[in-house]
């Protein structure tokens, strides 16, 4: 079994892959021209996850509604198992995520991290920063015109 630090790293890349825009991770992976042989453990499957919120933000959980999620699992020829979970309904993306997850546990990890995960992380951070910047520009700066007292 993987140790704690690896679990954290794996959690990070799986989360990144799950949230990445449709087709993006797949494109970055296919640009590498790797096609490692593998067998499917779980064919890509589209399903849903019930999202839960909390009353008052911090109180008792309640069911908010579902999101679509697609998952797949595969095994490389060396026996390494990869799992892919992606938001949305792209079976190709779930397969790519599973393949990337498997490769990240092999000697190809550094290469994949540089060529796939790093640009993905960068693009998503940029998108987020752009929106945060626009939000910041709509922050109200109050100034007092006149006070009613005196």
């Amino acid at each position: 079994m993987l140790d704690q630090t690896t679990d954290t790293a794996r959690r990070d890349w799986l989360s990144l892959l799950a949230k990445s825009p449709t087709g993006r991770a797949r494109d970055l992976l296919s640009a590498l021209d790797l096609s490692p042989s593998h067998e499917l453990l779980r064919a890509p499957e589209i399903g849903s996850v019930m999202v839960r919120g909390r009353a008052g933000g911090t109180g008792a959980p309640f069911n908010l509604g579902e999101i679509t999620v697609t998952r797949a699992s595969l095994k490389l020829a060396c026996g390494t198992v990869g799992h892919g979970y992606v938001q949305g309904r792209s079976k190709e993306d779930a397969l790519s995520a599973a393949l990337i997850d498997a490769l990240m546990q092999t000697e190809a990890a550094d290469h994949i991290a540089d060529a796939v995960l790093a640009p993905l992380r960068q693009e998503m951070a940029t998108r987020r920063a752009t929106r945060a910047g626009k939000a910041a520009a709509t922050k109200v700066e109050f100034f007092t015109m006149a006070r009613g007292e005196d």
């Binding site: 019930m50 911090t58 679509t68």
Partner: peptide, 14 residues
Amino acid sequence: TLPRFGGSLPLDTA
């Protein structure tokens, strides 16, 4: 028509 994979952890809206 969708199989349900499970329920999420409660969202942290903070």
